[in-house]
């Protein structure tokens, strides 16, 4: 059970003067239950790539399958849920409930079934039932994004694809969203995050891909990503790597502050820590 992309090429406006190659010979495979990051600069083909996962775009050559089906088959749409960068454009219900009911309704569900789906989505994200009656437009930026995600989840997708989910969010809303994604992933939903800034989520990821001008230039674990050398790294990772090159015995594949703190405390020695805390 996986999304398999094989030798995909994609050009916008083929055969016209505006023809532009967006993807070149891209192959990858995303297994069920994985947490995957797809990084790359703006314009590197990330958004074009994910639009192939549920048939919004079809490759000029090559093939994309989802759980063995062609991605262009209608059945795939409900399996691969997609959240675009600007959730405000995806919100149109008067209440959160209406908003979340929209997708299941469109897939032909009725009354109690719809309600069941909506509650399933709210529960998965750790959102209370109270929020159902609110107007989506009155929510904070992070909550809006969570509601947009819930709207996608109400269709019970196996794969959730998010395009730049953290952009424009402040620290609180960012951590709200990151913990929601972690919760979803632990419930077995495959998470695919596209971002030009992978640093916030490297510690959650199982696998990282990097696109450069339409080509897949890196595929590996976060630790392999950290060791690659020419891909953008979080400042904390740069710090740890530099400590290593200066001869300190620390790991270089550390992406967040808490882990760096533990590693440096260990390096500096427990004695000093205890000694100083006792003062």
């Amino acid at each position: 059970m996986s999304i398999v992309v094989r030798d995909v090429n994609f050009r916008y406006n083929p055969g016209t003067s505006l023809e532009r190659t967006a993807l070149e010979d891209v192959s990858l495979s995303i297994g069920r239950g994985e947490f995957v990051l797809i990084g790359g600069a703006i314009g590197s083909g990330k958004s074009t790539l994910i639009r192939h996962f549920n048939g919004l775009l079809r490759p000029c050559s090559g093939q994309v399958t989802v759980d063995g089906m062609q991605a262009s088959e209608k059945k795939v749409r409900s399996r691969v849920g997609m959240l675009f960068q600007f959730p405000r454009q995806q919100l149109f219900g008067r209440t959160v409930f209406e908003e979340l009911a929209f997708g299941p309704k469109n897939f032909g569900l009725r009354g109690p079934e719809i309600e069941k789906q909506v509650h399933y989505a709210l529960e998965l994200l750790g959102l209370g039932k109270d929020i159902s009656a609110e107007s989506p437009l009155r929510l904070s930026g992070g909550q809006k994004r969570l509601v947009a995600i819930a709207g996608v989840l109400a269709c019970r997708p196996e794969y959730l694809v998010l395009d730049e989910p953290l952009s424009g969010l402040d620290a609180e809303n960012k951590s709200l969203l990151i913990s929601a994604l972690r919760l979803l992933n632990s419930n077995g939903i495959t998470i695919i995050v596209v971002s030009h800034r992978v640093s916030d989520m490297l510690s959650l990821a199982d696998h990282v891909y990097w696109l450069d001008r339409g080509r897949l230039v890196f595929s590996g674990t976060p630790a392999e990503y950290a060791g690659h050398g020419s891909l953008p790294l979080p400042e904390i990772t740069c710090l740890m790597k530099e400590l290593r090159t200066r001869g300190f015995d620390v790991r270089g594949d550390i992406f967040d502050t808490d882990e760096a703190f533990r590693e440096i405390s260990r390096m500096l020695g427990p004695k000093r820590v205890t000694g100083a805390t006792e003062q």
Binding site: F261, S265, L268, R272, V273, T277
Partner: peptide, 10 residues
Amino acid sequence: LSKMLASAGF
């Protein structure tokens, strides 16, 4: 990180 280290006894 530097704040955490300082308050943890460095």
